[in-house]
Nucleic acid binder design. Structure first.
Length: 520
DNA sequence: CTAGGGTTAG
């Protein structure tokens, strides 16, 4: 073009962003003034969007400055793009400032702001904003807004919130929207209702790749590995091509239902069958699968062969191997895994605590203590483990070694005692795997229990000595992939509306870290 | 030529 104008430049930037090269869009924006072409509202929102994709808040702030300079701070779309950019860059303060300054708002910036809160571990804030929108806005919530709100309810794991949002979805007639329905199915599963999840899923007319992948993962999390495998077969028959995420789900399913050999087969055939090349995340999942079944030598051998592009990729891999070594009493492998983590500066707190605990479990109290001293010396602190349960619409949060922070903690203790008795009736006592309590004096048990609780995800950290056995059983049930059995036992005690939440629910949180305290 | 949503291993 002899004389490209603002529109030509903007088109080009939009094209680069669409072609997954948003950095080129930003680069072009910087070149505009030299060519005596000036940005308008279209240009600015396009380049803000490029910054959003890059999650580059620095570039975004520069563009924001241009927005002010050129006087577009009252433009709805430009501001909407800024809210989105700040939210996706984890700068919620700036996102909110732009949002509050807007003279005119439609459902889009409201949605962006809700997404911002929801994906930065401020789910309650996100839901609050949704309620405010419903009160003040002229438009009804659409499928975009509803899907993110359903997603927010899912990450809270609180069924009541999810049900209320489901009602809003029905009221607005967005039940049949594929994205909303997938979010609903995911929400029910994460809130502990696998049956409702499957019901929503089965009502969908065209279950697509993501809905199948999500459903496979849900079944797996509920200990229903066979159901995951059936769903996988079904989607293949429908001609839907699995992706790397689908394979991750199916490997996870095998791992958590004890289908180790099936999992290995799938790993070995995925490339030939569906052209998905196994990468670090798949191998990590398989290492975990072998490890939890006690096949630690194989797990270790596999782990050593995996090429990491970055140390952060090894955090999960060696962390998982460490936890399996601890469970099966393999001090040698645990030692190497924790060394790897500490040297790579990944999960250092967990590595130290795990090593200290494994020494306790094998009776080496002195080694355990010296690691605790080392932690103090180098200033490593472990954030206390946190778990929560939901009983009939109320949530009870537990911190390891802290009874007082939980309201009605004593009642929950009673519940746990009951749980323990029922498990004993079912013969779950003794004979479990691991080296727990081997060669340890009775009076040491309390310490073991306390140490163990730090990483327990089931809310049983309050237990004292006699109930220590319960912790052990629950943990082993989970580690053996029999979590469905554990869930059933828990449900049978409370009869209904009992949801057990894992602490590892921050998958949606992109950058930086967040603590359980932020969450609740 | 412009802004928003669902699945991801310990």
């Amino acid at each position: 073009m002899l004389d490209p104008n603002t529109i030509s430049w903007t088109s080009l930037m939009g094209g680069y962003t669409a072609a997954k090269q948003p950095n080129m869009a930003v680069w072009l924006f910087a070149k505009m003034p030299k060519n005596i072409v000036f940005p308008n509202a279209f240009t600015l929102s396009t380049v803000v969007n490029a910054c959003s994709v890059l999650a580059d808040v620095k570039a975004g702030k520069l563009v924001h400055a241009f927005v002010e300079v050129y006087g577009y701070q009252t433009n709805l779309i430009v501001c909407a793009s800024l809210v989105d950019m700040y939210g996706k860059s984890n700068d919620l303060g700036s996102a909110r400032r732009v949002f509050d300054s807007m003279v005119e708002r439609n459902v889009v910036p409201w949605t962006s702001m809700i997404v911002g809160y929801a994906q930065n571990a401020q789910v309650y804030e996100a839901l609050k904003l949704f309620r405010e929108f419903s009160r003040v806005a002229d438009d009804p919530p659409n499928q975009y807004m509803l899907s993110i709100v359903v997603n927010a309810c899912a990450s809270l794991g609180r069924l009541v919130y999810g049900k209320v949002t489901h009602a809003a979805v029905v009221k607005r007639g967005h039940e049949s929207n594929e994205v909303v329905a997938t979010a609903l199915a995911d929400m029910y599963a994460k809130c502990g209702c696998f049956e409702s999840s499957l019901k929503v899923f089965r009502r969908m007319l065209n279950s697509c790749l993501i809905s199948y992948t999500s459903m496979i993962m849900s079944a797996a999390k509920h200990g229903l590995g066979e159901v995951s495998l059936e769903l996988f077969e079904e989607m293949i028959l429908k001609g839907i091509k699995p992706t790397d995420v689908t394979y991750l789900g199916i490997l996870y399913a095998c791992s958590h239902s004890g289908l180790v050999d099936r999992g290995l087969e799938l790993l070995n055939s995925m490339q030939a069958e569906h052209g998905v090349i196994p990468d670090v995340k798949h191998y990590t999942c398989v290492v975990d699968m072998l490890g939890r079944r006690g096949r630690l030598d194989e797990a270790y051998r596999l782990a050593k062969t995996i090429e990491l592009r970055h140390d952060s990729e090894g955090a999960l891999l060696w962390g998982s191997l460490l936890s399996a070594s601890k469970l099966h009493g393999r001090l040698d492998i645990a030692d190497e895994a924790s060394k790897w983590l500490i040297e790579a500066k990944q999960q250092v707190d967990t590595a130290y605590v795990s090593m200290s605990n494994i020494h306790v479990l094998t009776g080496n109290w002195d080694d355990s203590q010296s690691i605790r001293s080392e932690m103090k010396r180098v200033g490593v602190r472990k954030e206390p483990g946190c778990s929560w349960v939901e009983i009939k619409d109320s949530v009870y949060v537990f911190y390891a070694r802290d009874v007082s922070s939980c309201p009605r903690g004593m009642e929950v203790l009673e519940l746990l005692k009951d749980l323990e008795n029922r498990m004993k009736e079912r013969g779950y006592i003794g004979g479990s795997k691991g080296l727990v309590f081997v060669d340890v004096e009775d009076e040491s048990k309390e310490e073991i229990v306390n140490l163990h609780s730090e990483r327990l995800a089931l809310g049983f950290s309050l237990l004292s000595i006699p109930k220590g056995e319960t912790i052990r059983i629950m943990k082993n049930l989970r580690m053996c992939g029999d979590c469905h059995e554990a869930f059933k036992l828990i449900s049978s005690i409370v009869e209904r509306d009992f949801v057990v939440r894992d602490v590892n629910r921050f998958h949606h949180f992109k950058n930086g870290s967040c603590s359980c305290k932020d969450y609740w």
